[in-house]
Amino acid sequence: MSEANAVYRLGLDVGGTNLRLGVFSGLTLVEETRFRANYSAICKEFAPALAWQTILQVTADAIRPLLDKYAGIQAIGIGFPGFIDPHTGVLAQSPNLPGLRDVNLGHDLGKLLGLPVRVENDANAAAYGEFCQLSQPVGGLLYVGLGTGVGAGLVVNGSVWAGQHGYALEAGHIIVVPDGRLCGCGNQGCVEQYASATGISRAYADLTGQTMTALDIARAAESGDRHAQAVYADAGSKLAQMLASVLKVIDIENVVIGGGVVAAWPLLQAAFEQRLEHDLIPVLRGKIKVHVSSTGDIAGMLGAALLAA
């Protein structure tokens, strides 16, 4: 097939402060771009209706140059953080985007761009991308993403399982510390407040009084900073605590852990493995295969693009 007649799909992964956009031909990434877009800041600055119109315009502005460059883009998929109804595509709420409720990104953006747009929870999209990259393992796959927050997605029998209302596998909001840190979802002690990049940064600040990014804390840990090492060890332990609880319920063999924080996996690994072995019920021990993502963190874009088909 010639370049002019090639068929492409566009996948977007919406992060805390930027959009990642990938043009795909099948499983192959043809081009990736990034676009500065702090949706959280937009939601805090403007009233909900104006914030939504701003988000739509920013997203469209990010997409249009790729539509102009790749005429063969036939569908757009977006991995978006929040609770999305699988039947209507309506975003009911996003814990990290205050005031954003009952909006339909797929419908509204599709009208602006003149192309079909499918919106999926960001962790579900990443789960599907990892599932396809692992050659569709028998039984399915559980994905846990460690980024600005903690997300999870489940693929069973080749399909994303979102639950009856679209809110399944919100594992980042499993409580691991009763009456612990306040979470954006309204509860206290969610694992997201300990094992995400934001949680790691907050934990280090609580210990030292210093505000640093998770990446800088990882570098400090590698240089011997005991507080930084302790924060990452605690993040690994809390992650395993959550994962063991989920696995007791869904009993799935393949687990992939991805997201930006896994770049520091060696700092998490020992505490994670020790706690997971301790917390799993005995019949599951030795049966769980935990993979660290090897997709180069493109799974969210890839899954969104494939689901758009």
Rank of each mutant, 00 (worst) to 15 (best):
M1N: 07
E3I: 08
E3D: 12
A4H: 09
R9L: 12
L10D: 07
G26T: 10
E31I: 03
T33K: 14
N38L: 04
S40Q: 15
A41H: 10
C43P: 11
P48N: 11
W52N: 05
L56F: 04
I63R: 04
L66N: 05
D68W: 05
D68F: 07
K69H: 09
A71Y: 05
A75S: 15
D85I: 00
A92W: 12
Q93E: 12
S94A: 15
P95C: 11
L100G: 04
L100V: 11
D108I: 12
L109K: 09
R118C: 06
V119G: 06
G129Y: 03
C132V: 14
C132W: 14
Q133G: 02
P137I: 05
V138N: 09
L142A: 15
V144R: 00
V144W: 00
T148V: 13
A152W: 01
W161E: 07
H173I: 12
H173T: 07
H173Y: 00
V177F: 08
V177P: 02
P178D: 13
G180A: 06
L182I: 13
C183Q: 03
G184P: 06
C185Q: 10
Y194K: 05
T198S: 14
I200K: 00
S201N: 04
Y204W: 06
G209T: 13
T211S: 15
A220Q: 14
S223W: 07
V231I: 10
A233V: 11
A235E: 09
G236M: 08
A240G: 02
V246C: 13
V249S: 12
I252M: 03
E253G: 00
G260N: 01
V262Q: 00
A263P: 01
P266F: 03
L267F: 01
Q269P: 00
E273K: 00
L276G: 02
P282Q: 02
L284T: 01
R285A: 01
S293P: 12
G300V: 14
M301A: 09
L302R: 15
A304F: 07
A305N: 09
A305L: 08
A309P: 05
